[in-house]
């Protein structure tokens, strides 16, 4: 695999890999919510850069797109749930430092050992001309069941998380007997109802 790549590509991948790890470490070093969030984003973008260098354009741009929106949504949650919504006061970004360090180091060691010891299958076909099409065919074909199960699982998680997070239920909106004609919402939506 590595031998297929040119020297510049390998150098780029190594540099971006180091950058992503360094940005990941920075998440725990900085003392501001915003800097931690964007250090994490920088780490993800470096991973997207690695994918781009490996010519997996679709995976690269989707990683950048998803992670950016994810971090932005995280910023929204930051003001909803933080005691210090603006986050400008310096604050520690680590909780349970020892425990998480052990878990992190253990996971890193386990994955590294796995990556270098597993007997990876060798490629017996040539590289596809269009990796995006190949990916789409895999997702929409042989791996469709997996994708559907994951998709429904994620969707259920999102709904469950929202239900758990919101303090207001349908009885608050439509009254004790759910008979109100119009929902009683603190912020009116854009539609007339």
């Amino acid at each position: 695999m590595l031998t297929d790549l040119g020297g510049w590509v390998i150098a780029t991948v190594v540099a971006l890999g180091i950058l992503s790890v360094a940005a990941g470490i920075a998440v725990f070093v900085v003392d501001s919510m915003a800097r931690a969030t964007f250090a994490l984003l920088a780490s993800f973008l470096a991973v997207a850069g690695v994918l781009l260098a490996l010519d997996l354009v679709y995976l690269a741009v989707v990683t950048a797109l998803m992670m950016t929106i994810e971090m932005a949504i995280m910023a929204v949650f930051m003001i909803m749930f933080m005691m210090n919504p603006a986050g400008l006061m310096p604050m520690t970004m680590v909780h349970n430092a020892k425990g998480s360090a052990v878990i992190g180091a253990g996971a890193f060691a386990g994955l590294t050992v796995g990556i270098w010891t597993v007997d990876w299958p060798t490629r017996d076909v040539s590289r596809p001309a269009d990796s995006t099409r190949q990916l789409g065919e895999a997702i929409m074909g042989s791996h469709m069941l997996v994708m559907l199960v994951i998709g429904i699982g994620l969707f259920a998680t999102i709904i469950a998380g929202t239900v758990l997070a919101t303090a207001r239920g349908r009885y608050d909106r439509f009254g004790a007997d759910l008979a109100a004609e119009h929902p009683d919402d603190p912020v009116p939506g854009g539609l007339p109802r």
């Binding site: 984003l41 354009v57 741009v61 989707v62 950048a64 797109l65 950016t68 929106i69 910023a75």
Partner: peptide, 28 residues
């Protein structure tokens, strides 16, 4: 030219979310 041009365009616009939020965040 890539096999995912439309997603590239979309990703640049998504990165704008982070950029604009930072422009708002920066000045305290």
């Amino acid at each position: 030219s890539t096999s995912a041009d439309l997603v590239w365009f979309n990703a640049m616009e998504a990165l704008l979310w982070a950029a604009v939020w930072l422009v708002g965040w920066g000045p305290n």
